[in-house]
Lab assay of single mutants.
Amino acid sequence: MSGNGNAAATAEENSPKMRVIRVGTRKSQLARIQTDSVVATLKASYPGLQFEIIAMSTTGDKILDTALSKIGEKSLFTKELEHALEKNEVDLVVHSLKDLPTVLPPGFTIGAICKRENPHDAVVFHPKFVGKTLETLPEKSVVGTSSLRRAAQLQRKFPHLEFRSIRGNLNTRLRKLDEQQEFSAIILATAGLQRMGWHNRVGQILHPEECMYAVGQGALGVEVRAKDQDILDLVGVLHDPETLLRCIAERAFLRHLEGGCSVPVAVHTAMKDGQLYLTGGVWSLDGSDSIQETMQATIHVPAQHEDGPEDDPQLVGITARNIPRGPQLAAQNLGISLANLLLSKGAKNILDVARQLNDAH
């Protein structure tokens, strides 16, 4: 009898209710805020589980004197976190989706994509230029951005401005803007500013005609071990179906173009009346040469937790077992079709030249 009692006690200790789920994140304040929001949602869904947040620095956090596009290494903000995932030191990792490459290392998958916040870019102005827009900034004003995508589009749109690289986390960039006289304004992701509670610093939100956004911008991705079915089931509740389908289309477009950090590629997606609209573009580094096109596809946005595919093969690095396969494939095909259209119009040449120029500098 006593033996059975011990077995029952052991089973209770090993039951999922007692389990601590370890969540990996970057150390920056924004990353911690984003991770806290994901953990809060998981806690609400699984009140019996405990969650421990483990923060670590990544290569991208450490190399702050070089433009991201020049470092010449993929997975700048993800490699150390993936290493911890691989060694079973954490069970899942919360990322900004735009930091996750469209091809993940073997053994990993994006197990959830959370509801997207505003994906557009924002302009934050130096205190002396508050009330201005990019259009009304004085001639030769210097605007800071760490992104080739932003610089290429904005140089084309605002030729009277000069664009220079600015690195560091959000706090560091804002301090550089406010305390030094080098920059009249800087460009940042609206979602990051909003998550930090800095709505009052948003001086201008850039519309798609001015600057399309990065693939996955404004959404959070939760990376897990691809074979860890328990954790895949656990994080599945975080999937937002519309965000998922938009981001599958965007990531398929980028992957098929073979774009990345070192080339200016941008997108804009919208879901309306059962249609998914995808606009994508590529630019030369100075913005003088560009190709942009829009395509659409009829896609039914499923309700969360309709029964999805059981075999769960990944699409552009994403596993969404609780979302039907048909809409996911339709979104992926839309991204591939748009990429093929741009490639047929000469996108590869623009991107190759951009890559060579970026590598040469």
Rank of each mutant, 00 (worst) to 15 (best):
E310Q: 15
K115R: 11
V23H: 04
S344P: 14
H207G: 11
D230L: 02
E250K: 02
S96R: 03
D312S: 02
F158H: 14
P264K: 05
F158L: 11
A189G: 09
L244R: 03
S45T: 13
G346L: 09
A347V: 03
V235M: 11
P313T: 07
E250T: 03
E242P: 14
T136P: 05
K27W: 12
D312E: 10
E223R: 01
M271W: 06
L188M: 07
K345T: 15
V316H: 04
I323V: 11
F108A: 00
L315N: 04
L85N: 01
R321S: 12
Q153K: 04
C247E: 04
H120L: 13
L170F: 11
I231K: 05
I63S: 10
R225T: 07
Q153V: 06
D91K: 13
N169S: 12
A339I: 02
L85R: 02
V23M: 12
I291S: 07
A31C: 00
I350E: 00
K43Y: 08
T243G: 11
L134W: 06
I323S: 10
L315I: 01
N200W: 12
Q180D: 07
K348I: 15
I323E: 06
S146K: 04
K115G: 13
F77Q: 03
R195M: 02
A249M: 03
A354I: 00
E117D: 13
M295N: 01
R26K: 00
R26P: 00
E179R: 09
R156V: 12
S290E: 15
L188T: 10
P127K: 10
A226D: 11
S37T: 14
E82M: 02
L341I: 00
D289P: 15
E258D: 15
K345M: 14
L104D: 05
S147F: 02
E210M: 01
T102R: 12
V94W: 00
A185S: 05
G48V: 11
N118I: 12
S37D: 05
E117I: 15
V23L: 10
L254M: 09
L97E: 04
G72I: 13
G197E: 05
L85F: 04
N169Y: 08
K227C: 01
I113D: 04
T172C: 08
C114Q: 12
P313S: 14
E135P: 11
K79R: 11
L68G: 07
A44W: 10
W283T: 05
D65H: 12
T294E: 00
I323Q: 15
R251E: 03
D91E: 14
R225N: 03
L134V: 09
A214Y: 02
D178I: 02
R156E: 11
R246P: 06
K140V: 10
Q314V: 11
L76C: 14
L92C: 13
P208L: 10
D311K: 02
L42P: 02
E209C: 14
Q275F: 05
L244T: 14
V235D: 01
R149W: 02
P264C: 01
A122Q: 05
D99Y: 02
V39N: 08
M196K: 05
P241A: 07
D233K: 10
S141P: 04
A270H: 11
I336R: 15
D65V: 10
T172E: 02
E210H: 01
D289R: 09
V301S: 06
F163Y: 11
D36E: 11
A226L: 08
T59S: 14
L245C: 11
Q155H: 12
T298Q: 08
L30A: 02
H160V: 05
A347S: 09
H256G: 15
D352F: 14
G131A: 11
V142H: 10
H300N: 12
G203I: 03
T243V: 01
A226Y: 15
I231C: 03
R173D: 01
E139G: 10
T109M: 08
V316G: 09
P264V: 00
Q332R: 10
A152H: 14
I318L: 05
V94Q: 05
G335R: 03
S290N: 10
F51R: 02
S37N: 14
A331M: 04
L42N: 01
L244D: 00
F129E: 15
T279V: 07
R175W: 11
K98P: 03
L92G: 06
E210L: 14
V237L: 12
V353T: 15
T58A: 08
V124N: 03
Y277V: 04
I231F: 03
Q34E: 01
E179N: 12
G168R: 02
R255G: 11
T294P: 15
Y46V: 14
L351K: 01
S75H: 08
H199F: 15
D352I: 01
I54Q: 03
Q356N: 15
L193P: 07
G287H: 05
D273S: 04
T109F: 04
R116W: 04
A112Q: 07
G107I: 01
D359Q: 05
V20R: 12
R149T: 02
L177S: 03
H207S: 14
K348D: 13
D311I: 04
F163S: 08
D228G: 12
D228A: 12
R116L: 04
V123T: 13
P101Q: 09
R251T: 06
D311R: 10
K227I: 05
A152G: 11
E89S: 13
I231A: 15
C247W: 04
R173K: 04
T136L: 09
P302F: 04
I21C: 05
K132I: 11
T269A: 09
L97S: 05
C261G: 05
S96V: 02
G72H: 09
A252E: 08
F163T: 14
A185D: 06
T59A: 10
D286I: 15
L244M: 09
T35N: 04
T78D: 06
V142P: 06
L30V: 08
D178S: 10
E139K: 15
L278D: 00
F158S: 09
A320Y: 00
F108S: 04
R150W: 04
E306Q: 12
I318M: 09
V265P: 05
S262F: 00
H199L: 09
Q328H: 11
V142M: 10
T133L: 09
C114V: 06
S37H: 12
P208K: 04
Y277R: 12
Q332G: 07
D311A: 14
D61Q: 02
F253Q: 00
I248H: 00
P101S: 08
Q275W: 02
I291G: 07
L161C: 12
